[in-house]
Amino acid sequence: MDPLPFLERQRSGRAALPWRETSPASGALKECFGGLERVRLQPSFFDSAGRKRRNARNGGTGWTWHLETLCCVRPEANVMIRALIAVTLALTAPAAAQNTRSLDGNVSPPASIDQLAWLAGSWVGTGMGAEVTETYSAPLGGRITGHFAMADGKGGVAFTEIVDYVPVGQSLAYRVRHFNPDMTGWEDQTGKPVVFPLVAIEKDRWFFDGMTIERTGPDALVMWVKITEKGTAKEVPFRLRRQR
């Protein structure tokens, strides 16, 4: 973001002209600057590369230019201005997108397996810094079945999965079992798959509990998986394209 359009204030003698607000941050900054005797914000203070220019009117007044605060203020006000701008930019910055959701005890929405028929085919891409491949069948017997493999970066396979999308009542769920290269299963002790019930469908996104499929094109998708490591949860994208 170019910092200069945030605010402009010009001086005429000792009387400041009105503010020209050009962003949501202007109101908060205006409140801060309102109590200062002499404040100037002029694009002419900076060149096209954002470097400070010398300004003859600054000589001998005790005022200093601060690119990070976008203003010319008394030195003792610098800390207050910097703190306010940091808070203002944090409040006006877009919130980080949430790509996965949790069912949280709610009821899964109605859905049909045919809504995911577009998954049929072989997909290749990357995820967690490795090459991955995934293949899905067309709907058969009310479900879609597939398998997944991730390369280990050494010419072998790190692990594989058997997956399916199945009807559960009037809704759907995604199920997966994981296997080591020797075909021993991660879920062998329970003999049960990991189940992700459907949470919501919004346009080209299918939210399962902790896993989301986002169709980004006719032959492109992103699968977001919520992974918890050492008590910290993060959303990991797997970006895939269908092979023709």
Rank of each mutant, 00 (worst) to 15 (best):
H178F: 13
I162K: 13
D164L: 12
V157G: 03
P197E: 03
D209W: 07
H178I: 07
V163C: 12
F207Q: 04
P197D: 01
P197G: 13
P167N: 10
G191P: 04
A151C: 07
L172R: 04
D152A: 10
V168F: 06
V163R: 11
G185W: 02
V163D: 04
V194D: 14
W186Y: 15
W206T: 04
L172N: 01
H178R: 12
L172Q: 00
V176R: 02
M183T: 10
M150L: 14
E187R: 12
L172F: 05
Q170I: 10
V199N: 01
M150K: 14
A158S: 14
K154R: 14
D204N: 13
V195W: 06
Q189G: 15
I162N: 06
E187V: 02
Q189M: 11
G210I: 02
G191M: 12
L198T: 02
R205S: 10
F179I: 08
D209C: 12
Y165L: 15
K192L: 15
A151K: 13
Q170G: 04
M150F: 08
V166P: 00
D152E: 07
W206F: 15
D209N: 11
G169C: 12
L198I: 05
Q170H: 10
A149P: 00
A151M: 15
G153V: 08
G156Y: 13
D182Y: 05
